[in-house]
């Protein structure tokens, strides 16, 4: 049986990067068998341009098909494969092995703070519940009369650009120590998505969202540890967005 089924990355020129052996230690949990999660080691031959996702596929496709994880686009835009890699929340498809210290084992486990389902899969429903609660959609009572687009200047559009990039991967929310201890907290991702609309010049629902987030489980729980900003695979300034929502609430307007 062929042993090398992981797709090689990069053009051939980039395959000159040497192969190496890396130890992946994955926190496994089969809810039908295990009482508690357990750490399992895998020694893998990998290439210099491979990502953590390639290593997980190598395990699944060559060693143990029962390893469960989510993935889809494999290049950092769908948000399926957020997980804890060496204790930090990252997307497996955006984390190159060569950027980690491969002389040491690489620890991979499911996101913290959301209920563990199996291996690297967590229950995403509580996360999406918080997202839906901030009413993440444009609220506007009228449409332009001429059947055309609403006008918005490039400056108005730029005001909320950063928070439009969110892919709802949950890396930020599940890196937040407040969220770990208080699952009722809306969490950074929901606030980011509220920010996206609060600062959109076309939107009329800012007050509603600010009222929602002025709750005891709202923005005031944020203790600016910046874990969320560090975790965001899209480079969103999450902590700053939360601060801007706090200021808007204090001002009473965006």
């Amino acid at each position: 049986m062929a042993s090398d089924v992981v797709e090689k990355s990069g053009p051939r020129a980039h395959e000159a990067v040497p192969t190496f052996t890396v130890t992946m230690i994955v926190r496994r949990f089969d809810p039908e068998v295990d009482e508690e999660p357990r750490w399992v080691d895998y020694d893998l031959q990998m290439h210099g341009t491979d990502r953590v996702l390639d290593a997980l596929h190598k395990i699944k496709w060559e060693i143990d098909g029962s390893l469960a994880f989510r993935r889809s686009c494999a290049h950092g835009v769908c948000g399926s494969d957020a997980m804890r890699i060496n204790g930090r929340n990252r997307l497996a498809c955006k984390t190159l092995l060569k950027d980690l210290d491969v002389s040491q084992p690489i620890y991979v486990e499911a996101l913290k703070g959301l209920p563990l389902e199996k291996d690297l899969i967590v229950d995403m429903e509580p996360f999406f519940d918080s997202f839906r609660e901030v009413q993440p959609f444009l609220m506007a009572s009228t449409k332009p009369k001429d059947g055309k687009e609403r006008l918005q200047s490039p400056e108005q559009r730029a005001r909320f650009d950063d928070t439009t990039k969110c892919i709802l991967c949950a890396a930020c929310t599940s890196s937040c120590p407040v969220f770990w201890t208080d699952g009722q907290y809306f969490g950074p991702a929901a606030i980011v998505n509220a920010h996206r609309f609060i600062f959109d010049s076309r939107d009329e629902g800012s007050q509603v969202r600010m009222d929602i987030l002025n709750d005891q489980e709202g923005v005031w729980r944020c203790r600016t540890t910046f874990n969320c900003t560090d975790a965001c695979p899209r480079g969103i300034q999450v902590t700053q967005a939360i601060a801007e929502v706090k200021q808007a609430i204090m001002r009473g307007k965006p």
Binding site: L138, A140, P144
Partner: peptide
């Protein structure tokens, strides 16, 4: 396109806001 804009899609804009 107009449907999407009216639904809230944040298109890039021209200097005059279109």
């Amino acid at each position: 396109i107009i449907d999407l804009e009216n639904m809230g899609l944040p298109f890039n804009r021209t200097p005059d806001g279109r």
